[in-house]
Amino acid sequence: MALEPLLSTRAQRAFVATLVLQGLVVLAMVAVVFAFVAEHVEFTGQYKTIPCYLALFALAEIFEILMAFDALRLRNIIQLIGIFIFHGAMIVFSALQVHETKAALIVPGGTDYFNRGGPDSLWNKVLPFLIVVPCVIAASWVIMAWWIRKLYFEFGWAIFHVVGANPAFKTMFQYYQIMICLLKFDFFCFTGVTIQLLILVLQTSSAEFGLTVAAIPIVLVLLAFCGWAVKREVKWLMTISLALMLAAESYFIYKLVRFYEPASREEYATTRATLTVFTIVAFLLLFATFAVGLRCFADFDKGLLSSKLHGQSYRPVATHGGDGKTDLFGDSSFLTHHPLLLAVTGPKTYSQSPLPSPGEQSTMRQSSYLGGGQLGPRISIE
């Protein structure tokens, strides 16, 4: 008997290969833009948009690949769907970066030749590479949709091995998976907002810079503790985590006001669009995390703890039957694990009785439901 290894199927390998290849192409295009700009300008002032652009895309690509391996390891369809949505958001972000880079490189009336947007300007030199990025991400998004569909059918029956066929348990476990997935994406969105603020906008001597730096470990600890609390059903820690989420929501609202109020709007002139999108997405994700967290809190102490702690260690196994051929379930576990049977009977143990001989049939016990009639050959459910 051997465990099925990670990336052992065509769909898994193709899904990861799609992400890796598009990540390499995107990072290459961004690196070319970075190199062209570095030849002519110093990354100070408005030009700091370019290295931040590279840093965010590098972070996004690494995060997405790690999330993909994690989803495949756990056979988690919900997380794969989350990656698909995240990839769509990257298309929007890459399109916004075309506008943001143009705002950084073109200064109306500037004396520097490269800042005026002429036919041979730096802007027109890097524009083709910037346009390639959203096109590549969009093409890989379509390919990902096909392979995620394949993985959905490949992993769809795994939930039966975690919580059985009980519909209530299945729903509770799905909310738990959504909660863990949301916490992971919360981490990326918060990191993306703070990277842009620290690199592009805030001065190290400002009070807001210190506030942003102090918020980083607080939010990261909040997300880690919330994940630990929801997995182990620690009520007091979950209560604190949910309360801190509301405080973090107020922080995002404060930042949105700062982006547009007259006293500070000029500080965010070259990054306002990207920061606004990131902050709104982070706000909505955290609000969704809070709402799903309340639902998960309500499911504490309802018998799901064992599945949370041990259920996701599941791995499909391939065994060899007596005829030497490979069988997905082995000789007899087909009866105890097949989804159709589980959906009807629940996670019970099946044993097949041998056919009785004619002499044995006469001594079989009577059934009161049949009015004393004899029971025939049967499959018993123990």
Rank of each mutant, 00 (worst) to 15 (best):
L27G: 00
V98P: 00
V20H: 09
A138V: 02
N115I: 04
F153M: 00
V20A: 11
A158S: 15
I50H: 07
L19P: 02
E154A: 06
V16G: 01
V37H: 11
I91V: 14
V41M: 12
V37T: 08
E64F: 05
R75K: 12
F69M: 08
Q79H: 11
E64Q: 14
F43V: 07
I81H: 13
V33M: 02
L74H: 13
V126R: 03
D120P: 01
L54P: 01
G88W: 08
A60E: 13
I85N: 05
S140C: 07
N124G: 12
T101R: 02
V26W: 02
V26K: 06
E42I: 07
K150Y: 00
L80M: 14
I131W: 10
I62Q: 09
I81F: 14
R73D: 06
L19I: 04
L21P: 00
L80D: 04
Q22T: 12
Q22A: 08
G110Y: 09
W157T: 04
F34I: 00
V26H: 01
R73P: 00
V32A: 10
D70H: 13
P51D: 09
E61I: 15
I148S: 04
F129Y: 15
F57I: 01
I78W: 05
T111L: 15
T49K: 11
A145K: 11
